[in-house]
Amino acid sequence: MSSHNEHREPSAQELYEGDQSKLYSGLMQHHGDVNSSESKSQVKKIWKVFWILLAITLVEVMMGMFLSHSIPKGVVNFFFLALTVLKAGDIVAIFMHLGDEIKSFILTILIPLVLFVWFIIAFLADGGFWLHMNTSNPVRQATEQVKH
């Protein structure tokens, strides 16, 4: 098949897209039977992740409706953020197939994201500190009056 390809003129489509066929990830290489057991187990995995995402969302909504006013806000927020990260991880790893890529590619995507999460935390901490330092801030004055 490949020797056949070498001898023919490139089609307009190839000129447009480049010959990417050599570069497909492991995922794209198999063109087997869609009814094979491998295919079916992948579909099963997709639906399993769907149920997990649905269950997490329902737990979040229940917490938001019934628990957000009875248990400390900090604890609820910790659970919300933890469940959100869990959902995001499932979507990226399974739905976006990042979990099926090779390790160097996974790291190339994840390292900048982790640095960005660190940046967000640093930014919010800095914002909180700025509020703490700025005694002329009317919002802060209102907060202090409420607290005392």
Partner: peptide, 17 residues
């Protein structure tokens, strides 16, 4: 979420042409 599932199923079907 549901539309994400149908999308990943479309991608899956694409892998099998």
């Amino acid at each position: 979420i549901m539309s994400s599932v149908t999308m990943v199923l479309a991608v899956h079907a694409g892998h099998y042409n």
